[in-house]
Amino acid sequence: MSNLNELYQQVILDHNKNPKNYGQLPPPCCSAEGKNPLCGDHIDVYLTIEDGIIKDLKFEGDGCAISKASASIMTTVLKGKPVAAANEYLEMFQDLVTSDQPNEEHKGKLGKMAIFRGVHEFPTRIKCATLAWHTVKDAVAAG
């Protein structure tokens, strides 16, 4: 059961129960809706960007513990970062959960997000973990 404990770590369960930055942001802000058609999960993310910096970031939606916790922790990681960092983080995160040998340097940069490495052992759940990140990318692209 070690894989399972790795996946459902206490931090992930806590964020699932009490997600950070849950809710909407008032306009003007960038927003996008992310969907996982396979399971019907959806997430809305809202960003306020000032001078190329992500000033505020919120999300809401229906999803599993993995997608909810990933979104919650993501908001804490990206808040205050330059917009360009969002894509960079997405790539590092993608590498963390999909690669057999993830880049150790990225693991350090990802900080708290690194606990999602356990998802690697559950291929069907990778989309759950990355949904929020892809949605942020869409929101930024939509302006």
Binding site: M1, G40, D41, R125
Partner: peptide, 29 residues
């Protein structure tokens, strides 16, 4: 309020195969 996907993943760790999701019946959900 445990999401069905989390339940399905945990059950699979014990060799139990169930389906989770909307089962292609979104109006029922």
């Amino acid at each position: 309020d445990i999401h069905p996907h989390d339940i399905g993943t945990i059950l699979n760790q014990y060799g139990i195969a169930v389906r989770t999701g909307h089962h292609c019946t979104q109006p029922v959900m």
